[in-house]
Amino acid sequence: MKSTTTAGAKSTATKTTAARARGLSDRLRVKDDESPWSEAEIKEVRGILLEEIEVHRQELQLAEQELDDLLRASTDGAGDDQADAGAKTAERVHEIALAANARAGLAQAEHALEQLEAGTYGICENCGNPIGKLRLQARPRATLCMTCQQKQDRH
């Protein structure tokens, strides 16, 4: 009986996801020279974002664990020469940077998924124009069109 219930739940979830994708394909904006988003394209982008979220969560967990281990293993530094103290500091800084990068990537991927679900995915957060399907397929977390991204990179 459980397998039937599980299969039924999976079927319902699949139908719900497909219906949501159909509704999104009509609402997501594209550039004038691009075709509308297809259900398959939306499903692919959603899958990529979900995978990125999971990878960033794992990276963040690992980096935080490494940092915790470093902090627990470190003592007050008594007896360390300058090279040892510097190496420990550099290692901590590296782990902090890894955690920060994973946290930022996670936030970006979650934001993109929220936008996808809300039907606002693919709209430049600076100028309000469509970002472009090709750019989003290459970089699903993009929040700026190429013009705005280039302006931001210059500053």
Rank of each mutant, 00 (worst) to 15 (best):
Q108P: 06
L116I: 06
A90P: 13
N129C: 10
Q108N: 15
T120A: 08
A90L: 09
G122Q: 00
A97Y: 08
R103I: 03
C124G: 04
A90F: 12
L106T: 07
E110C: 05
C127V: 06
R92V: 07
H111V: 03
N101S: 13
A109H: 05
H94I: 03
Y121E: 03
A118C: 06
N129M: 04
P130I: 01
A99L: 11
C127S: 13
G86I: 03
I96N: 07
A100T: 15
E125Y: 02
Q115L: 12
V93G: 09
V93S: 14
A99M: 08
E117Q: 11
E125S: 08
Q108H: 13
A100P: 07
A100S: 15
A104L: 10
A107E: 15
L106C: 08
P130L: 03
K88R: 13
I96H: 09
A109K: 02
Q115C: 10
H94Y: 13
L106P: 02
A87N: 09
P130E: 00
E117A: 14
L113K: 08
T89F: 09
A107Q: 15
H94N: 15
A97Q: 13
L116F: 07
T89E: 11
G86E: 08
I96A: 13
A118Y: 08
L98F: 07
A90Q: 14
A90C: 08
C124L: 04
V93H: 14
E95I: 01
C127A: 06
G122C: 06
A102P: 03
L106F: 11
A118F: 06
A99F: 09
G86Q: 06
G122P: 00
A102Y: 05
L116D: 01
R103K: 15
E117W: 05
A109R: 02
K88N: 03
A118S: 12
E95V: 07
A109L: 04
G86N: 09
